[in-house]
Design a protein around this nucleic acid. Structure first.
Lengths: 161, 161
DNA sequence: GGGTGTTTACTCGGATATACGATGTCCGAGTATGAGTGG
DNA sequence: CCACTCATACTCGGACATCGTATATCCGAGTAAACACCC
């Protein structure tokens, strides 16, 4: 029931990129080395971010990844959906319409979604709302408050100063 | 990233039990037949509910499961935690303390939880809050509003009238 | 007839296989770079 | 000296293994009921 590790990786990677300005693209190898991650698998996740239009990629020498939008217009929900897909946490398999109960209960209106589904979806919605109201820029600001020096360190690791 | 099917099964099963009153226990075979579920696996989930003290079990002939508490004091969060465990959706593996960035950044204060973790946990909390504010009795009431006849059908399937 | 011991059948409970998705790895397609060459 | 061509090395992108968890199944331990038997 846990989320993929890719979400954590993606968020940290996006944050790192947001600290560099839009100078030059950064290769997946460098991004992975920054946090000691397996290069190829991180690359897989980055491709998902490209597909979701959160990153842009450039091939060839001096190629790599770059933020596609301002950190102010990227929410945590965007990142989670990009990596995990748009399906909801709870999946209703309509078991209410199977088995003896359903067989004996012919008169019901199947049109309305079952109450269990609706209740669980309300919780899903609250979760998504909480993710959608937190922008990448907010997280970065909070991160700077904790430790203002980290931005310079990141810039140095990626050879920006 | 989906939740276990067991959650859906558990909620429907608990709802069915809540419609019977506290007359007699119901065996896992009957409960499974009600929705066409695999008996042995449903039984596994029911044991989790027993361990979480949402159900009580009686062995031997005419044994089975019974609600341990009033549906008014069981929340959807209780059910989810019983089946899925108490771990949060997002698991922080502290990658910020690995790799080149961490090696070069010696001065940071590791004591504070990282901002990413905190942000994701806020969303987790909103989700749990939304689950905790929905009681089993609420869902059942909503279900009755949709189709008042279903309770009688359930009682009939389990031989209560 | 009533009480008691025993058998029995039914229940839960946990140990054991299988399937699917997350995780991790690898190699090929494509391109910007830079060198080399000719004008 | 400049423009063009070509080889090159580096990048992303997607196809291929491996691992862990969710799913599904099975069999044994335990118990309450029912029966037979004895008092």
């Amino acid at each position: 029931m846990h989320m993929s590790k890719g979400v954590e990786w993606a968020i940290h990677t996006l944050l790192n990129l947001s600290m560099l300005g839009d100078d030059d693209p950064v290769g997946s190898a460098q991004l992975a080395a920054g946090h000691g991650l397996p290069v190829a698998y991180l690359n897989k996740q980055l491709q998902l971010l490209v597909k979701a239009e959160l990153l842009t990629s450039s091939p060839g020498p001096r190629g790599g990844f770059r933020l596609a939008r301002d950190p102010d217009s990227i929410t945590l929900l965007d990142v989670v959906l990009a990596i995990e897909g748009n399906e909801s946490l709870f999946r209703c398999t309509e078991i209410r319409q199977c088995g003896k109960i359903a067989e004996l209960h012919t008169g019901g209106n199947d049109s309305a979604a079952c109450a269990v589904k609706r209740a669980m979806y309300r919780a899903d919605l609250a979760w998504r709302e909480a993710l959608a109201t937190q922008k990448l820029s907010d997280v970065r600001r909070e991160l700077d408050m904790d430790d203002p020096a980290v931005t310079r360190t990141v810039r140095r690791v990626f050879g920006r100063e």
